[in-house]
Design a protein around this nucleic acid. Structure first.
Lengths: 203, 203
DNA sequence: GTCTATATTCTGATAGAC
DNA sequence: GTCTATCAGAATATAGAC
């Protein structure tokens, strides 16, 4: 019931080209910002002309869409394979630290995933799916640690995003805000009643 | 030592035209978003042609710059004339509620003032000045309430921004995040040691 | 699938008459 | 100060040959 070998090779080649396009777009975004991504330059980076991209993506936004889905899928995979400390308070901090590290490692990626950085772009349902899964996994994980209220999950995301956004907006590259993460996680853990010693004093 | 009356009238007229241009730009931004502001449409809204705008502003970014300065100046004025409750905890909540109301009343304005929403735009020092004054006034006010550490001011801004950003990004028009403001201010007040009863139970 | 060539549209900005 | 006319350039996207 499998397709002919020739078909497999073609599909593989197509997928490889799609990935080349997406990688080139990420490269431009990291170098010059998300808005600087143009079809001409994406094509040029992989030795193509811009119209050829339309053999692989229906539009420019379809490229952003693929980037969005790919990045959330990567984050989901990292979440799944990442071991967590047994102590609830330490575990919540580890989740937040992972999110911070992922975000700070690639700011344009953070802007695409978490801010509305591209005017005309709204992710498709398919690309949105892994981000929904991330939130679901986060909810399950937090529930396992004792955080059962959905509003508490919202609060956790707001606290993390608040530190990250201020850091990136006011002092990119510094740690004036993100350095307060243990303190904020302590506040959160106290608020929702997680046991364990203070994260700040025990370090 | 004053200028001739004719000069005053001319200066007034010039200032009025500048304000017309800025108001038209705000109108477009509120209707279609910040990025939708074009010189052609700004000019059309006040019965002009786009090249005429260059008699009043050096560039499109100079218009954004004036909008930025104007909005922060307005917020600064509102802060100054707004009375605060005597109880520290209530006062901090009132400051945050004012910030939320101002932000939610005009989302594109919030994006211009607090997010990096315009790719090529960086505010000039002159336009930035009132925003620095706002932070200074906030620091002074919080100090008067017992919040003396600069890191605590950073924390306050991160907490407020975190709720606002998540609300606007995920559920504009709702109150799933901003409704948690009293809770978050309670957390902040507890953390920095402000006296007074819980804001949630006393309401 | 990739190419050349081009359509279409829009942008901010400038030149120069009045 | 405002206008007409235009520049110079960018962008996404399409048509059709190969």
């Amino acid at each position: 019931m499998s397709a002919a070998p020739n078909r497999d090779r073609q599909a593989e080649r197509r997928e490889a080209t799609r990935r080349e396009i997406i990688d080139a777009a990420w490269g431009i975004a990291r170098r010059d910002g998300l808005a600087a991504v143009t079809l001409r330059e994406v094509a040029a980076m992989i030795g193509m002309r811009s119209p050829s991209l339309y053999s692989h993506f229906d539009s420019k936004n379809a490229i952003y869409d693929a980037m969005f889905g790919q990045a959330w899928t990567l984050y989901l995979a990292e979440m799944r394979e990442r071991p967590l400390p047994a102590a609830p308070r330490e575990a919540v901090l580890a989740i937040a630290e992972h999110f911070f590290a992922f975000s700070l490692a690639d700011v344009p990626r953070y802007q695409l995933l978490n801010q509305h950085a591209i005017p005309g772009f709204t992710p498709s349902e398919a690309a949105y799916a892994p981000s929904v899964e991330v939130v679901g996994l986060l909810q399950d994980t937090l529930r396992g640690l004792g955080v059962t209220d959905g509003a508490d999950v919202d609060l956790f995301l707001a606290l993390c995003g608040g530190l990250l956004d201020r850091q990136l907006a006011n002092e990119p590259g510094g740690d004036r805000w993100v350095g307060q993460l243990p303190r904020v996680i302590d506040m959160f853990a106290d608020e929702v009643g997680l046991p364990g010693p203070s994260l700040r004093r025990s370090r």
